[in-house]
């Protein structure tokens, strides 16, 4: 089978992405974080972050087509990603480890047209993650007056984002990605003090501690979901949005 895929997870360092684009101009870029419904190969323990499981399942299911994997392993991703990158190396993948921990020097200069737009929340998250590679200009999006905040990472099951109204502003790692600083703790932990915000993480992710801490600090709602949300979790989000 022809190898035609450049795979990645998280937000690979920009120079490495640019170099890889030049080396493989016709390659198909695949984000391994995303759940493409490939079979669970059970290579990862049951009680583990579902995003890391996605990475491993996607990688092995696409192994014959993957040229190389750009693998963030720094504070811009997580320790689990480091161990997975080493395991995948042992399994014969061409892994390029990247660390993207740059800090913003002028927070007032950040451009966040998607996070602050009035697009549906799911669309916002899809555009931001898609733009890691595409790098299109979205400066002309119409802004919203936010009524709610969504803090966190892109969920494994994006359908929970459809519970939120369009005037929901994006915070957390997703916002840091749009800003171009996925490892900047100040951007990741910024929220608006009086904006009712839901703090989301995947279960078994180390960001759970941060989400819980911030939810308590800002009187938001902490939600952790494993693979897919159950009805009670959805109802909890709906109640928070309705009562606030």
């Amino acid at each position: 089978m022809t190898k035609d895929i450049i795979a990645f997870w998280g937000y690979p360092e920009k120079n490495i992405t640019d170099k890889t684009k030049l080396e493989h101009p016709d390659a198909l870029w695949i984000d391994l974080d995303i759940n493409y419904n490939y079979p669970d190969l059970k290579l990862i323990p049951e009680n583990y972050c579902v995003i890391i499981k996605n990475i491993v399942n996607n990688a092995f299911c696409l192994k014959d087509r993957i040229i190389k994997i750009l693998a963030p392993i720094g504070k811009d991703k997580c320790d689990s990603a480091y161990f997975i990158s080493e395991i995948l190396t042992l399994e014969g993948f061409d892994i390029v480890q990247t660390v993207f921990e740059d800090k913003c020097k002028d927070y007032n200069s950040l451009k966040l047209p998607i996070s602050t737009s009035n697009l549906p929340l799911r669309k916002k998250v899809e555009l931001i993650t898609g733009n890691i590679i595409d790098r299109k200009d979205y400066q002309n999006l119409e802004k919203c007056t936010p009524a709610f905040g969504f803090w966190g990472v892109p969920p494994n099951d994006l359908s929970i984002l459809e519970l939120f109204p369009d005037n929901t502003e994006v915070f957390g790692w997703i916002r840091a990605v749009e800003a171009g600083y996925p490892g900047d703790f100040n951007i990741e932990t910024y929220v608006k003090k009086d904006l009712p915000t839901i703090f989301f993480t995947q279960a078994f992710c180390s960001k759970t501690a941060l989400a819980k801490y911030l939810a308590n600090k800002y009187e938001g709602l902490f939600i952790d979901i494993d693979a897919v949300p159950n009805n009670s979790t959805k109802a909890k989000i709906e109640a928070f949005l309705k009562l606030r």
């Binding site: 009187e219 909890k236 109640a239 606030r244």
Partner: peptide, 18 residues
């Protein structure tokens, strides 16, 4: 599940889900 108000407005809630 529980709900709490403060000064007549919603303040906090939780709902065990798992």
């Amino acid at each position: 599940k529980w709900v709490k108000y403060q000064n007549g407005k919603f303040k906090d809630m939780d709902w065990n889900t798992a």
